[in-house]
Amino acid sequence: MDSIVSAASVIAAGLSIGLAAIGPGIGQGTAAGQAVEGIARQPEAENKIRGTFLLSLAFMEALTIYGLVVALALLFANPFVNG
């Protein structure tokens, strides 16, 4: 197997998950802050806020997961490596 291709694949896999984690990280932070603020303002709405919050967290997490899928494809099913 070509060593340049494998080196590039490993670097790209690391970058793809790392870069994909930035945006959702910021988003989740904002969402968590707003959720805490909402609970502090209206403690009786905590259950409703928690449900929506967890659902939206999972949506943001999906974006990082796309990066992970790309990383896994590069590591385990790389189309540019012909065996």
Partner: peptide, 20 residues
């Protein structure tokens, strides 16, 4: 048909999740 890396145990040594 499948690339060589599927059969390498570089990843399966580290993690036993056998992707691919």
């Amino acid at each position: 048909m499948y690339p060589e890396i599927f059969n390498s145990n570089m990843f399966t040594l580290l993690a036993e999740a056998e992707v691919g």
